[in-house]
Design a protein around this nucleic acid. Structure first.
Length: 631
RNA sequence: GGGGUAGUAGUUCAGAUUGGUUAGAACGCUGGCCUGUCACGCCAGAGGCCGCGGGUUCGAGUCCCGUCUACCCCGCCA
């Protein structure tokens, strides 16, 4: 076989590296097109060679991952998305190729043709391909590489902003490759499952009309209609309901959604939903389909059985026991309400709080007496203050007595009642928050999650699903009602004839799917009757005219024989974050944005030309901020 | 809008309490040596606007003020 040698920098004795690089680049221009790919096809991926391939001549293509020169013997780890194979360049086998190999550097993109041989006694048991190596007979350099700004290997300690600036390099690393390939797999599993269950995939508009409800919209100015704007969808909610009106029966879409709100580790301005809607269904039907879908995804990705049906909790029960509507059920540390037990307490903070109609709730940390120093407890107090708690009262139950700053104010009868309520015994640490129910829930609910992490109570390999049901229809803010889910959510059937009672007591036919403490999906049965829809708008303080202005086309559609329908949407990014065991959704998105909604690689958002603004009938009112002094 | 953490070689960090001659280490990079490495090893070398701007001072990486960027959180996200 002829030896092909492609673009190789062989540096002259007095030549600088950059001069050598330029010279070889210029030489490469003469050889305008490599004919390597016309003559040779890839026969294997780098991660798949095993002992049974010994003796075969293979063609591999990939990147130089690691270079080890032992003098006359050169080893190179060649990497592609499937893994790594070791190449051995030995002057005994091919002198010319060996000389060329000594010039290779990290991240050059190359192809080799060579024989698979056994490593004999030099096997590497830590590599899947560790019992074989390749003796290359020919080598083609497709392209050389500058030294990357950070080393491309499985584990990196480079800061995230640097990696985001060079995302295409970060994405060469194994963990990110796996995450994105898992993402692709979940896409395929989802489509297969839903299509098999009678769902059809439809696209809905991205350029849409702005609706004032909900999150802040991303707006797109219209060139053709001066002064008017499209909005990017926060979700395809109304369109999927219209598809039900049209009779498509079962719809799904894997779709980008946009919300212009502040970011978090699990929130990006553009994110992907698995969006579904079904006609003629009860919540049970939706839940069953979703459980089947989760089972298919988890079996396909991790080969594990998540064992539906999943546990269910009402919203009220979740809030009382766990303080949040997205409880992590992988550990205990449940919250107890001790308001009654401390109503007459000598400790005024407790009794005063109860007298005001607020609550005293606590968490019993089994065996926590030894675990927590005064400093630790101060830290925990800081944690609850974030959520508005004034303080964190604590008591250590030691064998002889209760200790802690407030212990003296708690009488014997009270102690007995508290212990009974919290299931406390000697050696336990009791933590209390006295506050409004909202603050007590938020502070203790989040404290509980912190404690679960801190005490190592969480089995990272466990996937614990839970449905939260019976959400309130409305929440109140400054005397104004807001829809908790969205204004098209149907009231609970048992509450339908109580629409004239206290609206805050109305329950919705809404359900969230929670996995390991993250809300991964939420949906509801929708209102399909116009009279009910009008009543809900009324409760929300929307006049008929306003409702018509905002949602007129949906209301019109409801007049033409609407099937009962309902659906759900899953947060694909959050689901993947849990599936791949990472702690931010940036790690499962190919090109994510920073917490300031910037793309550090593409440098978006950016300035635009005056002419573009003009065409769009826009004028900037803020003076342009000066260029960043750091950039 | 608010709270917290960080920013010093290409990278990850030390140096900061106590302002003082020439700002260090590791990894990476470059060169040399090395035939079984796989975090290869050994030797040598290059590499710095101490985020940016201002102030205090005889003198600032270090003290003060402002500002920018990244990350985490509260608010916000039907």
């Amino acid at each position: 076989m002829a030896t092909t040698v492609g673009l190789i920098v062989v540096r002259g004795p007095t030549e600088t590296p950059s001069a050598a690089f330029r010279r070889s680049r210029d030489q490469h221009k003469e050889k305008t097109v490599s004919t390597f790919l016309e003559e040779h096809g890839r026969t294997h991926m780098c991660g798949e060679l095993r002992e049974e391939n010994i003796g075969e001549t293979v063609t591999l293509m990939g990147w130089v991952s690691k270079y080890r020169n032992l003098g006359r013997l050169v080893f190179i780890d060649l990497r592609d998305r499937s893994g790594v194979t070791q190449l051995r360049f030995d002057p005994h086998h091919a002198e010319e190729i060996h000389d060329v190999a000594t010039e290779l550097r990290s991240e050059w993109c190359i192809a080799i043709i060579g024989e698979v041989v056994s490593r004999g006694a030099n096997k590497n048991p830590d590599m899947p391909t560790g019992s074989v190596e390749i003796l290359p007979q020919s080598l083609e350099v497709f392209s050389k590489a500058e030294t990357p700004p950070f080393v491309i290997r499985e584990e990196t300690d480079a800061h995230e902003d640097l990696r985001l600036r060079h995302r295409y390099l970060d994405l060469r690393r194994g963990p990110l490759q796996e995450a994105l390939l898992t993402r692709s797999k979940v896409n395929a599993l989802t489509r297969n499952y839903l299509v098999d269950n009678g769902f059809a995939e439809f696209e809905t508009p991205v350029l849409n009309r702005s609706t004032p409800e909900g999150a802040r919209d991303y707006l797109v100015p219209s060139r053709i209609h001066p002064g008017k704007f499209y909005a990017l969808p926060q979700s395809p909610q109304i369109f999927k309901q219209l598809l039900m009106v049209s009779g498509f029966d079962r719809y799904f879409q894997i779709v980008k959604c946009f919300r212009d709100e502040d970011l978090r580790a699990d929130r990006q301005p553009e994110f992907t939903q698995i969006d579904m809607e079904m006609s003629f269904v009860t919540p049970e039907d939706v839940i069953e389909i979703c459980e089947g879908m989760m089972a298919a995804i988890f079996e396909g990705v991790h080969d594990i059985d998540v064992e539906p049906p999943f546990e269910r909790l009402s919203y009220d029960e979740a809030m009382v026991r766990f303080g949040v509507d997205n409880p992590d059920l992988r550990f205990g540390l449940e919250i107890s309400d001790v308001s009654e037990a401390v109503a007459d307490s000598e400790f005024r903070v407790f009794s005063g709080t109860v007298a005001r109609g607020d609550v005293v709730r606590g968490i019993c940390v089994e065996g926590g007496v030894e675990e927590f120093s005064r400093k630790d407890l101060d830290e925990l107090e800081e944690q609850v203050k974030i959520y508005g708690a004034k303080g964190l009262a604590w008591v250590k139950i030691k064998s002889d007595d209760w200790s802690g700053p407030v212990a003296n104010f708690i009488g014997d009868d009270e102690r007995e009642a508290i212990s009974a309520k919290m299931g406390a015994s000697v050696g336990d640490l009791l933590l209390f928050v006295a506050a409004s129910a909202d603050v007590a829930c938020a502070s203790l609910g989040n404290l509980r999650k912190d404690l679960g992490n801190r005490l190592g109570l969480i089995d990272e390999d466990e996937f614990r699903f839970c449905w939260i049901t019976d959400f309130p229809m409305f929440e109140e803010e400054d005397g104004q009602l807001h829809a908790m889910h969205h204004p098209f959510t149907s009231p609970h059937p048992e509450d339908l004839d109580r629409l004239d009672g206290d609206p805050l007591k109305l329950r919705a036919q809404a359900y969230d799917l929670v996995l390991n403490g993250h809300e991964i999906g939420g949906g509801s049965i929708r209102i399909h009757r116009q009279d009910v829809q009008n009543r809900i708008f009324e409760l929300l303080g929307l006049s008929e005219q306003e409702a018509q202005d905002k949602f007129g086309f949906l209301l019109d559609a409801l007049q033409y024989g609407t099937p009962p329908h309902g659906g759900i949407a899953f947060g694909m990014d959050r689901l993947l974050m849990i599936l791949t065991g990472v702690d931010s959704i940036r790690q499962v998105i190919a090109f994510p944005k920073t917490t300031q909604a910037s793309d550090l690689m593409a440098q978006a958002p950016s300035d635009v030309d005056e002419e573009q603004l003009e065409e769009l009938h826009l004028r900037l009112i803020e003076p342009k901020s000066e260029e960043n002094s750091t950039s």
